[in-house]
Each structure stands twice: as C-alpha cells, then as structure tokens.
Amino acid sequence: MKKIKRVYVWEIPVRFYHWLNFLSVTTLAVTGYLIGSPLAIQNSAEASFSYWFGTLRFVHFVAAFVFFFNFLFRIYWGFAGNKYANWKSFIPLSSKAWKEMLEVLKLDIFLRKGKPLRSTGHNALAGLTYFITFLAFLFQSVTGFGMYSAMSNSFFPKLFAWIVPLMGGDFAVRQWHHAMMWVFVIFAIVHVYLVFYHDYVEGRGIISSMGGGWKFVEKKD
C-alpha cells in the first residue's frame, strides 16, 4: 500500500510571483499584439477626442514595469526561498538531473512508464525550461526598455539604451521583441497542457500546488 504525505512546496511569494507573472505576461502579450497591429477604427472623430491607442500603450508600459520587478523579485527568491524555489533547481548541474530529464522525456513524449518521478519541486526538464524562459524574460525586458528609453527621461529605461545600437536600430529591436512574444504564447500553451498532463498521469496534485502550495508525494518506507 502506498503511503502519501503532504509537502509544502510553493511558498506564498512563489505563488504570488507566478500569478502576477501570469497576469502581466497576458496583459503584455495582448496589448503588445494590438500595438503591433491595431484594430481598424473607422470614425470621423477628431483625434483630440480619443486616446485609446495611447492608453493601450500606457497599459503595456505599466504591465512591463510590473513584469520586470516581479521577475527581479523571483531571482532574489531563488536565493532566499526554500529549496524548491532555489536557483539550483533550474540548472541541471548534477548527472542525476540529466537522468531525470531523460525520464521526463520518456514520460512526456513516448508516453512510457518509467520509474515514478522523484522530484518534489520542478522536475529537471521543467526547471531547465523555466530557466530558458527566464532568459526570454530578460531578453523581452532589455529590448522593451531599450525601445522605451527613446521616449523617456527617466534614468531607469536609459540603463537599457545600449541594446539599440547593438542590434542595429529600433526596427530590429522591435522585430525581435515582437517575435519573442510568440515564444511566450507557445510556452504558455505547452506549459498549461503539461501541467494538466502530469496531474493526470502522476496524480500528485500539481495543478492545485500553485494555488495552495501543497503537493503529495509517496512516503519512503
């Protein structure tokens, strides 16, 4: 008979970060897409009567600041949080991690039943994937604030102005910033599906773990 115990995996800051990140990324992707291809509004009103595109951009910029500082906070928590939130769980440093990655691939892609996954927090493959998304976060932040620096007098966006000459001008920065948005969209689709999938095949309560923080693991006898 299997013995199940509860483990408090995701602390409040981690869960708070996760859902704030969800909100800001969703807002950024939707507003960003609309900034790239605005809706056609056929009206004969004077420009001075409306400001919807300006508002749309404003929302995008505000969400960007929320996103960025939330991201910074998560990096900090990678050092301050519990072992499941630690930065080491994102980078496969041990051969054990690489072996587990192979197990996850077998389970996810070939639908094979291997040994049950031992990781309580992220599995090794998920950790690495999140690490790559952190790099994408960094890229979006740098390119976004780099473009923003041209229209701001604040010192903060100016810290990112160097990316523009490096990439050969605002156009290239905009192009890559836009393309990277799709990486977020694809990630979100796969991420949500895999959470459901693992919840289904592992039965460890992975979906609810990001709500209440608890996961269920088998007790070692």
């Binding site: 605005p38 809706l39 056609a40 509004i41 009206n43 009103a45 420009a47 001075s48 009567f49 409306s50 400001y51 919807w52 595109f53 300006g54 749309l56």
Partner: peptide, 9 residues
C-alpha cells in the same frame, strides 16, 4: 502624432 495616440490609422 495625435492620430496615432487616438488610434486613428
């Protein structure tokens, strides 16, 4: 520019 901010394209 005002047309841009107003979303008139």
């Amino acid at each position: 520019r005002p047309n841009y901010d107003a979303g008139l394209f």
